[in-house]
């Protein structure tokens, strides 16, 4: 077909992969990993201010103590907890003989564990952020 030969796209048409739980957990693992990495670069930089002067560190940390950054921190903790638990799930899929069979159930376990830890964390953290 003329239209087919003219296309310059390297992505084949009509073959969208729909891998359900396995695919979406991989997408989320990738996005959270990248997000945590970028945060870590900034986090090491701001912590290095303790070598400049106590005041320098305190002033910058003080600017973090507002609702916008506070909510960002909550999101970051959520990303870290998902990445950590799903990472353990990936290891179980790879190393445990039952892993591939139960990978979906294990994703539910990851979600349950995530909620179990996020609820007490959010209660405590948000009361610090909004309670002053």
């Amino acid at each position: 077909m003329a239209t087919e030969t003219r296309t310059r796209s390297v992505v084949p048409k009509g073959t969208l992969y729909r891998g359900r739980e396995g695919m979406w957990s991989w997408v989320a693992h990738r996005i959270t990993g990248l997000l945590i990495f970028v945060f870590l670069l900034v986090h090491v930089l701001d912590t290095s201010l303790v070598r400049v002067a106590p005041e320098a560190y305190n002033v910058v940390i003080e600017t973090y103590k507002n609702p916008v950054v506070g909510l960002g921190e909550a999101g970051l903790v959520g990303a870290v907890l998902f990445h950590a638990f799903n990472g353990i799930r990936v290891m179980l899929v790879d190393f445990w003989s039952g892993g591939p069979k139960y990978h979906r159930q294990m994703l539910w376990a990851v979600g349950a564990l995530w909620v179990l830890l996020m609820v007490p964390f959010l209660v405590r953290h948000l009361s610090h952020v909004f309670g002053g």
């Binding site: 303790v50 560190y57 305190n58 103590k65 903790v77 405590r124 953290h125 610090h128 952020v129």
Partner: peptide, 17 residues
């Protein structure tokens, strides 16, 4: 750093020290 003590409000140079 976030759950024990004053959580996020307790963070300053002294905490790190």
């Amino acid at each position: 750093n976030l759950m024990v003590g004053d959580g996020i409000n307790g963070l300053d140079f002294g905490f790190v020290a």
